[in-house]
């Protein structure tokens, strides 16, 4: 019977053999779908396991406080009103340092990308200074910019400056030469070519540079607040560490993570807006 049904199918010149099977599927993958709830679920599961471990005594309270204790410390911070003081001081340093560092970095990166002389003169300098740990230069920054906000902002500024330079000039180098030639062939001015062709073309690289420099800025925030900071999330963490108040330490670290998450989310939004033209 099955023989008869297959006969009915008008197959073009297919010789029939009994053994038919589907072509094995080998496509798919390498494409990202947005899976909304996955991230919060991962977070909650880890927190739940951690909490359970602490409650059951599997994780010793001396080694790691329970998430609920850290949360308690956070609530404390909120109720005393210190949360906003610490957050405000840190966000101010982050925003000022990162903004100035990024703007300077983009400017210098464009120079290196556009002018041979700047490339010859500045690129070795950037390569030489990028790997220097900015934390090691903290005493210098304090002498140069004072013990107050200046040295803290400067640390973050220098830390974000170099990766931005490198991302920007790499982006400029990657702009399709043919588009630039097109601009020249239509007689666009030099400034128009830079503004309308080179900068938008380098934007994907600049934005992925932002992701890296924002994380570096948060890392350096704690370092910058090590010395002479009364307020700030970094200062709070260091104080808690010195007192071995582990619940406060974890609460402070969680605050930094939240800042990191929010920044990543903001940059993601920015990418969606500025790079919607990408395939």
């Amino acid at each position: 019977m099955s023989h008869d049904t297959t006969r009915d199918v008008p197959a073009a010149g297919v010789s029939e053999t009994g053994n038919q099977r589907p072509v094995p599927f080998r496509g798919g993958g390498f494409v990202h779908r947005s899976l909304g709830p996955v991230a919060p679920i991962v977070f909650l599961v880890i927190l739940a396991i951690w909490e359970l471990g602490s409650r059951s005594g599997f994780i010793s309270a001396i080694a790691l406080p329970a998430p609920s204790e850290a949360f308690g410390a956070l609530v404390d911070l909120f109720q005393t009103g210190m949360l906003w003081k610490h957050l405000g001081a840190s966000l101010y340093r982050l925003i000022v340092g990162w903004t100035l560092g990024s703007l300077l970095g983009i400017a210098v990166g464009l120079f290196i990308g556009l002018f041979s002389l700047a490339r010859a003169g500045l690129l070795p300098l950037v390569s030489a200074l990028f790997p220097v740990p900015k934390i090691a230069l903290l005493p210098l920054f304090i002498i140069w910019f004072g013990i107050g906000e200046g040295s803290k902002v400067a640390t973050i500024l220098f830390g974000t400056f170099f990766p931005t330079v490198i991302a920007t000039y790499g982006g400029v180098d990657n702009v399709d030469r043919n588009l630039i030639r097109m601009g020249q062939s239509f007689g666009l001015s030099w400034l128009s070519i830079v503004r309308k062709i080179i900068v938008p073309g380098a934007m994907p690289a600049i934005l992925s540079g932002f992701r890296i420099s924002a994380s570096i800025a948060i890392v350096l925030l704690v370092a910058a607040e090590m010395i002479g900071a009364e307020f700030g999330v970094g200062a709070y963490i260091l104080m808690a560490g010195a007192l071995f108040a582990l619940d406060q330490l974890i609460a402070g670290v969680a605050l930094l993570s939240v800042i990191g998450l929010i920044i990543a989310w903001l940059i993601g939004k920015l990418e969606k807006r500025l790079l919607s033209w990408r395939t």
Partner: peptide, 8 residues
């Protein structure tokens, strides 16, 4: 290759 700006 057309040389169109992909962002415009």
């Amino acid at each position: 290759d057309f040389a169109l700006l992909p962002w415009r």
